Simulated scan of single mutants.
Amino acid sequence: MSVLAEGQIERFFNILNEVTEIVQKQKDQSYLDSLIEVLDTVQSGDVDALGLTSADAKKVDHKYAEFKRDDYDAETLRKSIQMAVLKATRVDKIQANYQITPDTIADIIGYIISGIFSGQKQLSLLDPAMGTGNLLTAVYNQLDNNLHIKPAVSGIENDDAMFELAASSFDIQHIHAELFHEDTIQNVLAPVVDVVISDLPIGYYPIDENTKGFRTRSSNGHSYVHHLLIEFAMDHVRNGGFGFFLVPSQLFKTNEAKQLLKWMQGNVYLQGLLNLPSELFQNKASQKAIMILQKSGGNAKQASPIMLGEFPSFKDRSAFQKFLTEIDDWQKKDLLQ
């Protein structure tokens, strides 16, 4: 990244941070709630909407005057917003499901999608659990830069705060998206797309009544929400389309995996399972992987061999680049033939 881009990221983050702290202090509320208000007004410059005292409003007006949207590209703005959300998780000690997907992982997913869809003129993306929208916008920006495609984008999120952060992030980046503020498991009328991507929430889904009709639901007790979301997502992929999911590395080693594997047969092909570097996780049990699924039908077929492996340390650039080259070769020789 250029020094100029880094300076721009810091500049916009400082605007967001300083105004957020002013709002937080005056209203005596969380940093996250204050950030949501700021993101909602920074483009319009509507200081009155923040309900501040005249002295604070004057300070904010001065900060907002520093922001010229046309001076920034979308990726710079995304990274600045990401920094502000990361600060919110630290300041407010927010629960784990607000954690942002690391950019390196988003870059890998975008890289693989770019290889598979090279030469295409159109592409559509859906994230059924988009959170703050960071993964979705990061991949969008990468495809825009690498393939010169502006994908049609859809995202679903149930959490109020995360949805508002995502909606503001898309708006500020000037990314047109169809966003659904709903519980995905309650059968949202989402579009059928070429690719689904998601950093899946892990754990049990609490409302058993809503899981009726899902083949991955548990026969006893609560069902795994990540299983349900995988099924929902791949049901919304066109024949031959792809799903890229961040999942536990031990996904297929639980008792509940039987239902997931049973659903997969005849519906999707497991094309790859790439463990992320173990150094990113506290222990083996918390390690995650990128799972690549392909919807059956169309020109889809089972790749042979399946792409299995573990990424080398992200710090070892030479080994990391070598692994990406192996993925390229696998795509050309085994996946897309």
Rank of each mutant, 00 (worst) to 15 (best):
A5T: 06
R11F: 15
R11P: 00
N14D: 13
V19L: 11
V19P: 08
Q24T: 15
D28W: 02
Q29E: 13
D33A: 09
A49K: 15
T76C: 13
R78C: 04
S80R: 09
A88S: 13
R90A: 01
V91Y: 03
D92T: 06
I100C: 05
T104I: 08
I108Y: 06
S114I: 00
I116E: 09
G119H: 09
L123S: 07
L125V: 04
G131D: 07
L135Q: 07
N141W: 10
L143S: 09
A152N: 13
M162N: 08
S169P: 00
L179S: 10
F180A: 11
F180Q: 02
E182F: 06
I185E: 07
Q186L: 15
D194N: 06
D199P: 05
Y204F: 12
T211G: 07
R217H: 10
S223D: 05
L229T: 07
L229D: 02
M234I: 04
M234R: 05
R238G: 00
N239F: 08
G243R: 03
V247N: 04
E256C: 02
Q259M: 14
L270R: 13
L274S: 01
L274Y: 07
A285R: 11
K288D: 04
K295H: 05
S296Y: 10
G297N: 03
S304D: 13
I306G: 00
S313Q: 03
Q321C: 03
